[in-house]
Nucleic acid binder design. Structure first.
Length: 517
RNA sequence: GGCCCCUUCGACUAGCGGUCAGGUCACAACCCUUUCAAGGUUGCGGCACGGGUUCGAAUCCCGUAGGGGUCACCA
């Protein structure tokens, strides 16, 4: 039997990591067995429908490399793939159920149902539809419906006995039928509810394995009842563990960043997101933790899905991302992907491709996301960078060394890594000073900061000319007088000190001293 | 609250009757080092609890506790 899986998101907002998660496992399960992976849009809720959502979710799957074999965009043998375009199909199937006596029309108003629930809550307990509409004779149902009276269609469920669903990962799960209270399958607006639509579509589209999140387990008996009412063969149910917020509740927008677009904008790579998601509930038989889609597909075994309740830990996602950026992907690849982020940051990259490659090369061990590469790259693309506080101190302390190195550098014949390195080491040895005494002022002059890639790397990448210019500029800056250079900053500093004095906490002094120890 | 699911270090997990309970992230220390990273080494830290079954339980069974999901004309 062909393995057919599907992902069936609702177009209600940002592409959700949970959708990517279930999509990944659906995709891999299908591909493992040479089957098809279908994308179907569950847009039966007109209240929550969002215009751009479908396109963005589809784009997310493309970005992730989880290409659907059939979708609203590409079409396929079971088109249409939007439930809102399949209304006739659902109607047809509801009619069959009506005819066979498996369903009935119910005419209670929303108010009446609310009242019923309030009443149930007040006295007894069991919440849910009490089946009051069942007693209406079919002819009466017909008549009132024909007269245009608003109504829903409900599935007639057994009052006693049990319904057992088989979950591939959990085994048999048995529910008392009295728990299943004649669910609505067709809404008064003529749209099907999820229960009806999912069963009809999955059957018609030949879905063999229903991969979805665990939150659906309790509604699965309804689906089983529907399959039986239609006389259809049951698919296999695979309920994936629910992704969690750090507090263990169901992953939500409110408590976590669930938007794949958001991660994409931060410079998270699709490979990393996929790899990370895969480790949430699944592991390679050989224990490998870094693998791509293809490798996962080859080694996939649905029975290795673990049933814990995995917390979506952004820190670990970032770790995977960093791993891909600095180790797993070739430099050229990382650079190509970093370029849009550099451009977005407003840098003029010029047309020296090797230069960008060099920059990304030294920056990638220091970045966890593409965005961070861009954040750290400023001084590589502009001469106008400011000197931060630490840098100013270094410049002030290193004036003589800067002048000397400027001289040495300008006379340097072999301007490559070893040449620059030798020159600097010779100078340091000559002067009998610590490396830092020379390197830090240089770093400050070259970058305006006190933390950066290696100084020799910087000089080689920037080139002789620019390096000399930067040293020159720093020297000029020193001459101009450090403290008053940035009046705004000076004012802020003064204010901060005043503030600190007021609260009687000479914090800065204390921390500076402890550091010096 | 009813029903259902889940339970190995703070997090993700390996384990499927006999292991010093392994790995990864995070955290800490050290090494490397001109800074920040990266990298290397080491450390910290766990089988929720109670009963069984068994020569032997993280592994099997029962119970308890805890966590979560679900009880809509939302999916």
């Amino acid at each position: 039997m062909e393995v057919v899986t599907r992902i069936a998101p609702s177009p209600t907002g940002d592409p959700h990591v949970g959708t990517a998660y279930v999509g990944l496992f659906s995709y891999v399960l299908a591909k493992k067995h040479g089957g098809r992976f279908i994308f179907r849009l569950e847009d039966t809720d007109r209240q929550r429908y969002q215009e751009q959502s479908e396109r963005r979710i589809l784009e997310m799957f493309e970005w992730l490399g989880l290409h659907p074999d059939e979708s609203p965009a590409s079409g396929g043998p079971s088109a249409p793939y939007r439930q809102s375009e399949r209304l006739d199909t659902y109607r047809e199937h509801v009619d069959k159920l009506l005819e066979s006596g498996h369903a009935y029309r119910a005419f209670e108003t929303t108010e009446e149902l609310d009242e019923m629930r309030t009443e149930q809550k007040r006295l007894g307990k069991p919440l849910g539809y009490d089946g009051r509409g069942r007693s209406l004779p079919p002819e009466e149902q017909q008549r009132r419906a024909a007269a245009g009276e608003a109504h829903v269609v409900r599935l007639m469920t057994p009052d006693d006995g049990t319904t057992t669903v088989v979950d591939r990962l959990r085994g048999e799960i048995t529910f008392a039928n009295e728990e299943i209270r004649d669910p609505v399958i067709l809404k008064s607006d003529g749209y099907p509810t999820y229960h009806l639509a999912v069963v009809v579509d999955d059957h018609l589209m030949g879905v063999s394995h229903v991969v979805r999140a665990e939150e659906w387990i309790t509604s699965t008996p309804i689906h089983v009842l529907l399959y039986r009412a239609f006389g259809w063969q049951l698919p296999e149910f695979v309920h994936m563990p629910l992704l969690r917020n750090p507090d263990r509740t169901k992953l939500s927008k409110r408590k976590s960043d669930t938007s794949v677009d958001s991660y994409r904008r931060q410079g998270i790579l699709p490979e990393a997101l996929l790899n990370f998601l895969a480790t949430l509930g699944w592991s390679m038989p050989d224990g490998r933790e870094f693998f791509d889609l293809e490798e996962m597909t080859a080694a996939f075994d649905v029975d290795r899905v673990s049933l814990g309740e995995p917390v979506f830990d952004v820190k670990k996602l970032k770790f995977f991302n960093a791993k891909y950026i600095r180790e797993l992907l070739p430099l050229e690849d990382v650079a190509a992907r970093a370029i849009p982020f550099l451009e977005e940051a407003g840098f003029d990259l010029g047309d020296d491709r090797d230069y960008v490659l060099d920059v990304v090369d030294v920056l990638r061990p220091r970045a966890e996301t593409l965005q961070e590469i861009a954040e750290q790259a400023a001084y590589f693309f502009t001469e106008e960078f400011p000197y931060d506080e630490g840098a100013r101190k270094q410049l002030a302390a290193g004036q003589s060394h800067l002048q000397a190195v400027e001289r040495e550098l300008s006379m340097l014949e072999f301007f490559d890594y070893d040449g620059v390195d030798d020159m600097l080491r010779d100078y340091v040895q000559d002067q009998a000073v610590g490396m830092g005494k020379v390197m830090m002022p240089l770093r400050a002059a070259l970058t305006g900061t006190t933390s950066s890639p290696g100084v020799v790397d910087l000089i080689v990448i920037l080139g002789k000319q620019r390096s000399l210019e930067r040293i020159g500029r720093a020297l000029t800056f020193i001459d101009a007088g450090l403290p008053d250079d940035d009046p705004q900053k000076a004012a802020e500093e003064a204010k901060r000190k005043e503030e600190a004095a007021k609260h009687g906490r000479p914090k800065q002094v204390a921390s500076a001293r402890s550091k010096a120890d």
